[in-house]
């Protein structure tokens, strides 16, 4: 690294010591070698690498070596740089295994499509000298939906009466954002409750991570719909309710004795979707939407719009405090 860049690094990151002085990478193909103290150079922009990003799921920290937290040496703004990683892996959804692929090109395309649409994370694509499309993502200062819901300190009735109407309204907004993608021929591909971020400043719900791709099928939006159904179940129930959890308490055992296999998820036989049996004040209209994702359903939603036609009227059916 030349002295001019190193001096800028030291100015922006005063805690850097001489032994942290790394290299300047114009080619990001070998992303495992790029770490703290290095600089990624894309066109006329220089990004100081701070760390690898990690994803926390099911209590485990999962490092993402191809995703770097960086600081722009000019503006000093922080960004997330997603480097190219053409990963192929299997994703298990209940008993079904799906071949999954990471597509930087798909994510770049969607970033272009949703430019200035605050319902989605924002970013641009810059190419390194090897032609790798590096996605330069703006940070969303906030927390993921699942963390926010899990930290709500209220019993379910209080949550449902006081907080849920606002959450449902925002969730409907996120579904409309997915309709926007589908209308433009794109899938989100990885719809999960931790892929909705709630921005601290605005309270806005924003989708992140668009790089998952799958083989094409007759129902191209089935996986996205399935993900939305899971999130709806999660926000309605203030968490996931499983047979295991119910069996742990006397009240839960009583509820369990009233349940049939049809009351549970179409794909996860231990996740309760017929939440009205647990929380009788959940309106039937809303519960009916949930049951479309249960093992007992004979009719599936084919589009998110169909689901929204049933879900939007539920807002006016919610109990009032």
């Amino acid at each position: 690294m030349d002295n001019a860049v190193w001096e800028r690094m030291q100015r922006v990151l005063p805690s850097l010591s001489l032994r942290d002085r790394g290299d300047i990478y114009t080619d990001t193909t070998e992303f495992m070698s790029i770490s703290y103290g290095d600089v990624i150079s894309l066109g006329n922009r220089l990004f100081a690498v701070l760390r690898d990003e990690a994803e926390r799921r099911f209590g485990m920290e999962d490092p993402k070596y191809w995703v770097k937290r960086c600081r722009d040496l000019e503006t000093e703004e922080q960004y997330i740089l997603k480097l190219v990683f053409h990963e192929r892996f299997e994703q298990n959804i209940g008993s079904i295994t799906i071949q999954c692929f990471r597509s930087p090109e798909k994510e770049s395309r969607i970033l272009d499509r949703v430019k200035n649409d605050a319902r989605f994370m924002q970013g641009i694509t810059l190419h390194d000298v090897a032609g790798n499309p590096v996605r330069v993502l703006e940070l969303i200062r906030g927390r993921s939906l699942d963390n926010v819901i899990e930290d709500i300190d209220a019993d379910h009735r209080t949550y449902f009466y006081e907080l849920f109407p606002g959450i449902l309204e925002k969730f409907i907004g996120t579904c409309e954002a997915i309709v926007f993608l589908h209308d433009h021929g794109e899938k989100h591909g990885d719809i999960r409750r931790d892929h909705i971020w709630i921005e601290h400043r605005t309270g806005r719900y924003r989708w992140i991570d668009f790089d998952y791709a799958y083989e094409s099928t007759e129902n191209p939006f089935g996986l996205d719909l399935f993900g939305l159904g899971n999130i709806l179940m999660f926000i309605t129930g203030q968490g996931i309710h499983t047979t295991h959890e119910l069996a742990a308490t006397q009240k839960g055992k009583e509820i369990l004795s009233t349940l049939n296999p049809e009351d549970f998820s179409l794909l996860f036989p231990n996740r309760l979707f017929n939440l009205r049996k647990m929380f009788p004040y959940i309106p039937e209209e809303l519960n009916r939407v949930l049951l479309r994702f249960s093992a007992g359903t004979y009719v599936f939603y084919e589009t998110v719009e169909e689901m929204l036609q049933d879900l939007k009227p539920c807002l006016s059916c919610l109990p009032k405090t």
Partner: peptide, 12 residues
């Protein structure tokens, strides 16, 4: 196909 597969992938 199973009901779950039909939900996720559709069926021609």
């Amino acid at each position: 196909v199973s009901k779950a597969e039909e939900f996720l992938f559709g069926s021609v």
